[in-house]
């Protein structure tokens, strides 16, 4: 972003990568695929790079409003300094926080999640599913991230991105507004679960496997971790792939 600024240019959209997308090895792949998609359709985008920092979401959900607002105000200062108007995020948690909780602290932007961007690009005819891996007829089940689905009512965009593949979309018993959490939200990602008789991600994977899928589609790096761990535990890594919507889109277009 700093480079664009120095060149006196403004991006059409800022890609907010997020901590998982920046540091987590698995999520980094998703980040690069989102970049490939942006590049493929010729959108002029920028990233903050080392100027980006945690949105404060996990701190806020853990109850630390101080730390959250410190993070938020620092980020807002950076975003406003660059005169950012539109943001696409690679993570539903960043998406929810910037979209809903930043305006009250002085940061108002048009914020979309990358699955919404993909839906828009498909609707505009800029993105198809051709020239790459064929998902035709493959059984795909989509896991709704809580902060995209129930949190913000976005159920259709990710499904739209899958429909275009001509794949066989199968819904889990608990889906959309009734979708079951992967177990990572509310700062659970960063702690051991409380005592119980099962891990939440295992409960979810059991349900996903009931649909007999070849691909489990996700839209959140934390869900990605939880679902991938579940698949590993069930020893199904060879048969079932857990892929982000961005990865599926990039593969289908040979990016």
């Amino acid at each position: 972003m700093a480079e664009l600024m120095a060149a006196g240019e403004e991006p059409e959209i800022l890609f907010w990568v997020g901590c998982a997308g920046s540091y987590d090895e698995r999520a980094q792949k998703i980040t690069r695929d989102i970049c490939k998609i942006l590049h493929h359709v010729g959108i002029k985008y920028a990233v903050l790079g080392t100027e980006e920092s945690c949105t404060g979401d996990p701190a806020k959900r853990a109850g630390n409003e101080f730390l959250f607002q410190m993070q938020a105000m620092t980020n807002i200062e950076v975003l406003n300094a660059y005169n950012i108007k539109k943001i696409v995020t690679g993570c539903p948690h960043c998406f929810n926080t910037i979209k809903n909780e930043y305006p009250g602290l002085g940061g108002t932007y048009e914020v979309i999640h990358h699955t919404q961007l993909i839906q828009d690009l498909i609707n505009e005819g800029k993105l198809k599913a051709e020239g790459g891996e064929s998902f035709k007829g493959k059984k795909i089940t989509y896991h709704d991230p809580c902060y995209l689905g129930r949190g913000n009512g976005i159920y259709e965009a990710p499904r739209k991105a899958l429909e275009v593949l001509d794949a066989q979309l199968v819904e889990m018993k608990r889906c959309k507004s009734n979708g079951l959490c992967c177990g990572a939200g509310g700062a659970q990602m960063f702690k051991e679960p409380e005592k119980g008789n099962k891990d939440i991600n295992v409960e979810r994977i059991d349900e996903a496997l009931e649909t007999n899928p070849q691909v489990i589609a996700a839209g959140c790096p934390f869900c990605m971790t939880m679902l991938s761990d579940g698949i590993k535990l069930k020893d199904k890594e060879q048969e079932v792939k857990v892929l982000d919507i961005a990865e599926i889109t990039a593969r289908a277009n040979g990016l």
């Binding site: 959900r61 809580c146 129930r150 959490c181 939200g185 659970q188 679960p193 409380e194």
Partner: peptide, 9 residues
């Protein structure tokens, strides 16, 4: 309180 995933279900 620490078992909640804030999933809104």
């Amino acid at each position: 309180i620490w078992a909640c995933t804030s999933c809104n279900a």
